[in-house]
């Protein structure tokens, strides 16, 4: 696999970090809205999978931070 250069790695780090912030807000909003709107979100979206995605992105972001 072609190794990424430093600039590409930096862009990827920023993207993962911003995506993680976005997913954090999204997951929190969805969980709160699901309670307030009495199950509307979970009727259309598997919230457990979204939470799993958030966890994976969080781990990737942590790994990038640890490598600094």
């Amino acid at each position: 696999m072609k190794k990424l250069n430093e600039k590409q790695k930096e862009i990827l780090k920023i993207f993962v970090r911003e995506f993680f912030y976005f997913l954090s807000i999204l997951v929190a909003a969805f969980f709160i809205l699901d309670i307030v709107l009495k199950g509307l979100i979970s009727a259309y979206l598997n919230l457990n999978l979204l939470f799993l995605l958030w966890l994976i992105i969080a781990l990737i972001d942590l790994r990038f931070k640890a490598k600094k």
Binding site: I11, E18, I25, L26
Partner: peptide, 16 residues
């Protein structure tokens, strides 16, 4: 880059 991404994700969140 981070501000651009925040804007894009912000718009996406609004659409959702």
């Amino acid at each position: 880059l981070n501000l651009k991404l925040r804007l894009v994700f912000g718009v996406f969140l609004l659409v959702i």
